[in-house]
């Protein structure tokens, strides 16, 4: 996998994530798609487990850094490094497990995997912040965040389908095996 190419795509997808979260959120709710997780899902569909783990940690840390949280006893928000990194790592592990039984060429595969992976990441995130509420003075209720996480996952899955049409041709650019690469392909006759 080409690290520079992934960094460039990360820059673009982080920009989309930060710029479109608000405008694309449904009504007054906080339900919105995660572009960064779609990119991670695409990487996890084709890269090695080690490369996927590093990509998950890096994208998770970037998400953590750009996502300040409000504490009850502080006016200024705090940035906590780690929750999204661990959540993305677990979500990516699910994608790694499921990718073997998926048709990678189908854009809906990216949608389905992004949705399920994001769901696992959301549940992990709720668990982590549940633990954090013991050490940080933070107003935290698990149920609304679990519901929100489910809706976010569905929305991410829907958003991933059109994004698949953009990401799939970029496989060679990222140094990832494209969907046309077959394990038992016919040898080239020329």
């Amino acid at each position: 996998m080409r690290v520079v190419a992934l960094a460039l795509l990360t820059w673009i997808f982080m920009g989309l994530e930060l710029g479109l979260k608000g405008p694309l959120s449904l009504g007054a709710s906080s339900v919105s798609p995660s572009f960064v997780f779609v990119l991670l899902t695409y990487v996890a569909m084709a890269a090695t487990p080690r490369q996927t783990a590093w990509a998950a940690l890096a994208l998770g840390v970037l998400t953590d850094l750009t996502n300040p949280y409000a504490l009850q006893d502080r006016l200024s928000p705090v940035v906590v490094v780690g929750p999204n990194a661990i959540a993305f790592l677990l979500g990516a592990q699910l994608v790694l497990t499921l990718r073997g039984v998926m048709i990678r060429r189908n854009p809906f595969t990216l949608g389905f995997l992004a949705c399920t992976g994001q769901l696992v990441a959301s549940v992990t995130l709720v668990g982590i912040f549940g633990v954090r509420s013991l050490i940080d003075n933070q107003h935290w209720a698990a149920s609304p965040h679990l519901w929100g996480g489910l809706k976010n996952a569905l929305y991410t899955g829907v958003a991933a389908v059109p994004l698949a049409l953009v990401l799939m041709p970029l496989g060679p650019f990222l140094g990832l095996p494209g969907p046309q690469a077959r394990r038992f392909a016919r040898p080239n006759s020329t």
Binding site: M14, L18, G60, D64, L65, V78, V79, I86, R132, D136
Partner: peptide, 24 residues
């Protein structure tokens, strides 16, 4: 990262705020 996520209180992660601002 697991330790930072689960054990270290937010007020001790002040250094991450400037990093977040740089990323933004």
């Amino acid at each position: 990262l697991g330790a930072l996520a689960l054990v270290v209180p937010g007020r001790y992660q002040w250094w991450a705020t400037s990093l977040g601002s740089t990323v933004t």
